[in-house]
Design a binder for these strands. Structure first.
Lengths: 129, 129
DNA sequence: GCTATATTCAACCAAATGGGTGAACAATTG
DNA sequence: CAATTGTTCACCCATTTGGTTGAATATAGC
């Protein structure tokens, strides 16, 4: 059961939550539980169709799921994909700290001249992928 | 120091990292430290100008900073804004768990129908539009 | 001063995005 | 069946986006 961190998925998730309306929708769903499309749309100063489209984007990103019950579509939030985002940012941070470790504390004296500290850190290069 | 989580900033940060090229740029900067625009651009199958624009987007989001040294612009990653993203997702998660907790309380009070509150909320509908 | 290098600015283009409207489809109800 | 309700589909429109190219600006070196 590996989580295949596909670049495309990550882009889709991040793009989905980069829109304030969609973030708001997601928050609403998270705090109130599954809601109908119309109920959701009623809270925004935009057309039902616009909200419907936003929901589709959330669905495509895996951040929302739909349970169709008759003519009513119940939309529910799903925060699982957020873990992919966390994972990516986490990885970024550890790469960052790894490099800072290699550089050592020599760097903290000033940010203008860094050439020498780099060569200094070369003695202990693990080459972490 | 409160995190004055401006919606606009969050959107800008998320949109910035929603592009795979920009994520790649950020990763490169994080693992290799400050780099010149040309050096960065040389790693991508796109024009220097395209990369230059991507860098600007990262800068605008606060994810990269620029130190101009003569004609050379050193671009450096800055992961601080990521904390805003973490904060938002974290908030979302706690809201989620809070609601689940509330649902649990309702159950232990002797309610027998699990989805009643959602579907039944129709009678309390304020009316969209 | 001239030339080469590093980078941005400006204009342009195709595609994607966020929004709107009206019609269509699906399901419930009288 | 007909009417109503919930939702999507198909278009249209303006703006943004990601990319291109060519010119402009700034600095470095001969």
């Amino acid at each position: 059961m590996g989580e295949q961190l596909q670049d495309h998925d990550l882009s889709e998730i991040l793009k989905a939550v980069s829109d304030p309306t969609r973030r708001s929708l997601l928050t609403t769903l998270v705090q109130e539980g599954p809601l109908r499309v119309t109920e959701l749309a009623g809270r925004y100063a935009m057309s039902l169709n616009a909200v419907s489209k936003h929901i589709k984007v959330l669905e495509a990103a895996g951040l929302a799921t739909r349970r169709t019950m008759g003519r009513v579509h119940l939309i529910e939030a799903n925060l699982d994909p957020v873990r992919s985002v966390d994972a990516w940012f986490g990885e970024l941070r550890s790469i960052w700290e790894l490099r800072l470790d290699r550089l050592g504390e020599v760097f903290s004296e000033g940010t203008r001249n860094n050439e020498r500290s780099v060569t200094d850190a070369k003695k202990d290069d693990p080459g972490a992928g």
